[in-house]
Structure formats: C-alpha cells, structure tokens
Simulated scan of single mutants.
Amino acid sequence: MLRSETATSPERREQALTGLRAYQAAERGKRRKAAPMRYRKGRARLRDYGPKGQGREAGGRPVVVIPSLINPPFILDLAPDISLLRWLAAQGFHPYLLDWGSPGPEARDMNVTAHVEQLLLPLIAKFAEPPVLIGYCLGGTMALAAACAAPVAGLALIAAPWRFDGFSGRARADIAELWRAARPTCDAMGLVPMEVLQAGFWRLDPARTIAKYEAFAAMDPDSAGARTFVAMEDWANAGAPLPFAAGEQMFDQFIGGNMTGRGEWHVGGLTVDPASLTCPAIDFVSLSDRIVPAASAADLPDRRDLGAGHVGMIVGRGARMQLWEPLADWITALPAPR
C-alpha cells in the first residue's frame, strides 16, 4: 500500500516511514486500569463507570454503551480528558461499557447473532430497570437488534451500519476479495485475526492511512496532539480476534448480502426491523465517515447528521459539541422509568 500510494514521490514515502518509526518508538506510559466489572456473561463484561463507593444502583439512569466487536472498547474511554463514558457519568448518568472479551478457538461457531442472543441480551436482563443502549459502529447494529428483542428505555446509534448496500461497490468488492484470501486460514484457526480486519480498513482509504503517518512525522512528540495520535493508533491497531462464524456472517451475510438492510436478520426469533422499535431511538450519522458511509445508516426518523468522521465524532476536538452534548440532552429528555 505504501509503495502504491507514494509511487511518484520517494520523499513522501520516507516521510511516512519516519512517522511510522516515530509512532513505534513513542512513549506510552503506564497502562490505565480498566473500570471495575459489574456484571458478566461468558467472556463479556459490563464495566462500571458510575460513582465509586455509592452502591451499584447509584449514579442515575443506567446507560449501556456497546462498542463494535472490532477493535478494543477503550476508544470510548481513550484518556481521562477524552472519555465519553466519564463525561456521561459527570452529567449524572450511570454508564456501563460492554467489554466483549477475547474469544478462543472454542468460540468459532459464535456468529454476530449469537453475540446478541447469548451475551448482550442476558446482560441487559440483569438491570432492575431497562437501560438506555448506546451502540457505536457494529455495536450499534447489535444494539438495534437487542432493542427489538428486549425492553430498553431508549436506543442511540452512533455511526452504525445497517444498509450495507450503502457501501460503495468498490469497497464491498475489495472486502470480498480480502475475505476470499483470508478465509481458509481463518477457518483453520477458528478465528479471524485483527490483522485481517485492519487490512480491510486500510483498503477503505489507503491515501489517508499514509497521509496521517506523514503528518505525524512532523509533530512534536511531546505535544498533546502527538499523544492523542499514539493513543488512537494503538486502539486502531489492537483488538481481539473474531470467532470465525462472526467474521463469516459479517463478511458474507452483512457486507456481502445486506442481510440487515433486506430485513432478513432474525434475533431471538424476531425479525430485526428498525420500524418495529417501540422505544425512543436516535441515529447519529457522520456525513464524512470513510469507514461507515452515511448511506449505510438505518435512517431512523430522529436522525442527526454530523460533520466529524467515524472516530472524530467520539474523540475529536469537536466531539463534545457535536455528539456528547446532544446525546446527553436526548437521554435527559427520555420518559422517566415507570
């Protein structure tokens, strides 16, 4: 990819490699401790971001934040001052972060549907009152399914794909080619390694992948911007593998077959249909998202279009104004629990 994108510019290639070396050598500091576990089902855990030492029901309305199965969940708690979860707690809510955990080969037959039925729905059922669900990326797709199958107080989607035919034909073809090449090895392993998924993301926007390392080469390594870049790249380049069946369903049935957009996804014996939602729901859609294009959104009646990108809407400089505050206002306006 580097050779292709910098074929006419050896200077750009050297600049990108300089940025890559700087990223690899950057100081990380001490790893932050994960928030405490409140509930567990199988390998999945709900991490508690509510007030400490005030009991498990303290901290206001329960809000369950559901990340994608791809990449670790800590993008939602990237740093003490860049954390949607900690900010929501400061607004008086009681946030929980779903940590999907790391599957082993024994989980090879657990597809995306099974993650909702066997992990997410049982965790939701542990709450005394129906929680609000906030789903990011594929986590939003899964949250929508859960909201169709169980009582919840509200559903907020953030950059969540639903109509996979909204991805460009080129993107879907590239991803299909990648999966054809990787599938035999993944099948033998029973897992889809993160490296396979990351290669797919790179193909969506290779020019930007190279350009960001070129830009990092010119950054002061001690600057706040450089530290944030390193934290974001560590997140983007990390993550547990997917069970083989989850990868197979995502690549073949979701991206390849548009199962969700065609109304053919069934969870808990029910057809997952955005029109059947009985709870208040909102859809935050990025108009500049290169990973989950706006055309793939579920397009709920309450849709808010944002100018920030897929990751920027969560952790960018404008995230608080564009997403965090409108999201908190929407949760506050939800009907009180009965």
Rank of each mutant, 00 (worst) to 15 (best):
A246Q: 08
P241H: 03
I291T: 14
V272L: 03
Q249P: 00
P280T: 09
V285D: 04
P301G: 05
L204R: 11
K212M: 15
E233K: 02
W202L: 11
H266G: 00
L191C: 04
F201D: 02
D220P: 09
A226S: 11
P274G: 12
I210W: 08
D283Y: 11
M259N: 00
F201R: 14
L300C: 05
C279W: 12
C279I: 08
P221F: 03
F229A: 03
T271H: 08
V196W: 07
G239R: 00
A217L: 10
D222A: 15
D234Q: 06
F216N: 01
E248L: 12
S276R: 14
P280H: 10
E214Q: 13
L300K: 08
P293S: 04
I282W: 01
V196E: 07
R227S: 09
C279E: 03
A231T: 02
Q253Y: 02
E195K: 10
F216A: 07
F244T: 04
T260P: 00
A281T: 13
A298N: 04
D252S: 10
D252A: 08
P280K: 05
R208N: 13
A246C: 06
A275P: 04
L242M: 08
I210T: 13
A246N: 03
R208T: 14
L191G: 02
M232E: 15
D302K: 12
V285K: 05
V272Q: 02
V267N: 00
W202N: 12
R227Q: 14
P293D: 10
T209M: 15
H266A: 11
G263F: 11
Y213I: 00
V196C: 08
F201N: 07
D299W: 01
A298K: 09
R262K: 15
A297C: 04
T271L: 09
A236T: 00
G256H: 11
T228W: 02
A245G: 06
S223Y: 08
P206L: 12
W265N: 01
D289G: 04
G269P: 02
P280A: 01
V192H: 06
F201A: 03
F254Q: 06
A226H: 10
D289R: 01
I291E: 13
G257C: 03
Q249G: 07
D302M: 10
R304N: 00
T209L: 14
D273G: 06
D220S: 04
M194Y: 06
A238Y: 05
A231W: 02
S288N: 14
V196Q: 05
D283V: 06
S276A: 15
G263P: 11
P221I: 12
S276W: 00
P243G: 06
M194D: 13
F216C: 02
F251E: 05
G256L: 05
A246T: 06
G257Q: 10
P274T: 11
G261F: 14
F216M: 09
R304H: 13
R303Q: 13
P206G: 11
R203D: 07
G269E: 05
G263Q: 05
A238T: 01
F284N: 02
L191H: 01
A275E: 14
W265L: 15
A217W: 12
G200K: 07
M194H: 14
A275T: 14
Y213R: 04
F229N: 06
L270D: 00
P293K: 07
A199M: 11
A297I: 11
